[in-house]
Nucleic acid binder design. Structure first.
Length: 473
RNA sequence: GGCGGCAUAGCCAAGUGGCUAAGGCGACGGAUUGCAAAUCCGUUAUUCCCCGGUUCAAGUCCGGGUGCCGCCUCCA
C-alpha cells in the first residue's frame, strides 16, 4: 500500500512520489523568533516531525529544512517599518539580534524536549540576504517585479497562476481589509520583496539603498532554493500560511525559476484550546514550560498533540492532556509487557502463537500512516496489539516480533517509553523487603513500603508471576 | 463580502456508499486480590448538528440551514 497525502495545491489525496527515487526534499515553515513558541505552534512542528519520521520509516532519505525567521516581519503596515523583533527590542531596550538569538535557542530547546528530530539545517533569514537580493534582481530583470524608490514589489498581474494554492482571486481579495493600501503599488495585491526605511534597526545595504530589509515572503523562496534546489517534494506549514505566505512563495519562486516549485503542499490545522482559539487575553497560549509546571512530561504533550489527524482541528484542555497521558501510559505498559513476554513470562505456550495477529496489527498501523498520516488509526492498531498481549495470546517469539514492531512504530510516534528503566538499588531492596513482609503476612509493613514507594512515583503491581513496578504517570 | 475546513457516545477520536458505527479515556456492575494496583467479564451511540434530496442502500454523495475554526498582507 502506497503512501497517500492530501495536497493543498490540488485539494485531493494523491499517491506520494518523489522527484528523485528514494529522496525527499522537504521544507517546513518555521518560527518567527520574537517570543516563546506555544503549544499551537508546536502542533505544526510536530506534524512536520511526524511526516519526516514516517517518510524515514518507509526508507526515504529525507532532507528536512526548517527556516528561522529573524528579520523583517512587520507588525502591521500602520506601524510602517517596525517589525516584531524590533518592537520587542524597543520594549525590552535590548539589541534585536540578541533577542532573536535568545528565542531561537529556546525554540531549539523546546523542539528537543518534544523529541523532534533535528532538521538537516535551520537556515536563518538574516544570513541569507544576498540570496534574497539575487532573486529580487532576477525577478526585476524578468519583469515580474518593479522598483519604487527604495522599495521593490512583486507584480501579481504578471503571474497569472497567483491564487492557485489558496483559491483566492486577485479581484476578490478584500484589499485594505486589515491594512491601508499603499499608494505606490500598481495593484493592491502586489507584495513587497524589499523595503527601505532609515528607522529600521535590522537593515542591509543593497543597490536599492543603504537602509533596506527583505520583504515578507522572499526568505523562504531564497532559502529553500539554496538548501534544497529549485524544486521541492514537500512544503509544509500551518493552515494560516496558505495565504498569503505560500501563495507568494509560489509566485516568486516559479516566476524566478520557470519551474514548478513544490510537488506537495501540506498544512496543519490549528490547535484549539478550551474549544476555541487560543488567545493571550484568555491566558491559554500555553508553552511547554506551562505544561511541565502542571506536572506533565513533554512526551505526554507530544502524544497529546499528535494523537489527532493533522488536518482536523484538535482540541486541548488540561483534562484532555490528562486523558492522553493515561492512554500513553498504556502503550508504555504494552512495551513493558512485551519485553517480559518475549522471555516467556505470561506468554502463550507455543512460541509462534499470535504471529499472524502481530503482522495484522503492523499492517493496520502502516496502512493508517499511509492514509495521509492517520495517526489515530495507527494508534488504534497498537491498542489492538495490547489486547493480544493482555489476553496472553502471544508466544515468546511473537512477543519478540511485536516488541520489534512497537520499537519501529515508536520511531514514528516518538513518545512511548520503550526501554526498561533500572531502579536504584535501595528501591530494589525496599521491594524485596515488602515481599518478605507479605510472606510473613505483615501487611501493615508491606503496605507501608508500598505507600512510601508510591510517594516516590513507583507503582507496584502484584501479579501471579511476580511483582511488577512502573512509574506513576 | 470572497476563499477554505470542521460537526460521530460523558470526554477525546477513526470511519475510503453496503457485514453487528474502529480505538482510547472515563463511569457503572461483577470476578480476582490480605487490601490495593493491574487484569478479566459485562454495561455505556437503534444512530452520526438540523431539514430536504439522490440511491435498492448515506455518518459517508448533493442542496439548504445552524454552530465552531482558519485565511483575505504575515499569527503554526
Amino acid at each position: 500500500m502506497a503512501f497517500t497525502v492530501y495536497n493543498s495545491l490540488t485539494r485531493t489525496l494523491e499517491p506520494f512520489t518523489t522527484l528523485e527515487p528514494g529522496k525527499v526534499r522537504m521544507y517546513n515553515c518555521g518560527p518567527t523568533v520574537y517570543g516563546r513558541a506555544h503549544i499551537g505552534n508546536m502542533r505544526a512542528y510536530l506534524f512536520a516531525d511526524t511526516l519526516r519520521r514516517w517518510l524515514e520509516y518507509q526508507g526515504y532519505d529525507v532532507k528536512q529544512v526548517m527556516n528561522i525567521t529573524d528579520v523583517g516581519h512587520l507588525l502591521d503596515d500602520a506601524d510602517e517599518g517596525e517589525d516584531k523583533i524590533e518592537a520587542q527590542a524597543k520594549k525590552e531596550k535590548r539589541d534585536p539580534w540578541e533577542i532573536s538569538r535568545g528565542w531561537t535557542e529556546l525554540f531549539f530547546a523546546d523542539l528537543a524536549k518534544l523529541g523532534c528530530k533535528p532538521a538537516f539545517v535551520y537556515p536563518k533569514a538574516s544570513e541569507h540576504v544576498p540570496e534574497m537580493l539575487e532573486m529580487i534582481d532576477g525577478l526585476i530583470a524578468k519583469g515580474f517585479a518593479y522598483q519604487v524608490g527604495g522599495d521593490v514589489y512583486f507584480e501579481v498581474e504578471k503571474f497569472p497562476a497567483y491564487g492557485k494554492l489558496s483559491g483566492n482571486k486577485v479581484e476578490e481579495l478584500d484589499a485594505g481589509a486589515r491594512i491601508a493600501v499603499r499608494e505606490e503599488k500598481k495593484n493592491p495585491a502586489d507584495f513587497a520583496l524589499w523595503k527601505s526605511d532609515p528607522q529600521h534597526l535590522m537593515k542591509w545595504t543593497s543597490r536599492f539603498g543603504p537602509d533596506g530589509f527583505p520583504g515578507w515572503h522572499i526568505e523562504c523562496s531564497a532559502m529553500s532554493r539554496k538548501h534544497l534546489g529549485e524544486q521541492l517534494d514537500i512544503h509544509t506549514g500551518g493552515e494560516d500560511n496558505l495565504f498569503p505566505h505560500h501563495e507568494c512563495e509560489i509566485a516568486q519562486t516559479e516566476a524566478f525559476t520557470g519551474r514548478a516549485f513544490s510537488r506537495y503542499w501540506m498544512h496543519a490545522k490549528f490547535l484549539q484550546v478550551d474549544g476555541g482559539k487560543m488567545s493571550k487575553r484568555l491566558g491559554n497560549c500555553y508553552s511547554i514550560d506551562d505544561v511541565v509546571a502542571k506536572g506533565f512530561a513533554p512526551r505526554q504533550l507530544r502524544y497529546c498533540l499528535i494523537r489527532g489527524h493533522y488536518r482536523t482541528p484538535l482540541n486541548f484542555t488540561w483534562d484532555i492532556l490528562k486523558e492522553s497521558a493515561a492512554a500513553l501510559a498504556n502503550l508504555d505498559d504494552l512495551a513493558a509487557r512485551l519485553r517480559r513476554m518475549q522471555t516467556g513470562v505470561d506468554a502463550s505456550a507455543s512460541s509462534d502463537d499470535g504471529l499472524d495477529d502481530v503482522a495484522r496489527c503492523k499492517a493496520k498501523f502502516e496502512s493508517g500512516m499511509n492514509e495521509d498520516l492517520n495517526v489515530p488509526k495507527a494508534i488504534a492498531a497498537l491498542n489492538e496489539l495490547r489486547g493480544l498481549a493482555l489476553e496472553k495470546r502471544l508466544g515468546a517469539s511473537a512477543a519478540a516480533a511485536a516488541f520489534q514492531f512497537l520499537r519501529k512504530a515508536n520511531e514514528v510516534l516518538g513518545c512511548i517509553q520503550m526501554e526498561e528503566e533500572l531502579l536504584p538499588a535501595d528501591i530494589e531492596q525496599e521491594i524485596a523487603a515488602r515481599q518478605d513482609a507479605r510472606k510473613r503476612k505483615d501487611f501493615k509493613e508491606s503496605d507501608r513500603i508500598r505507600d512510601t514507594l508510591l510517594a516516590q512515583g513507583i507503582v507496584l503491581e502484584d501479579t501471579p508471576s511476580g511483582v511488577v513496578w512502573k512509574r506513576k504517570s
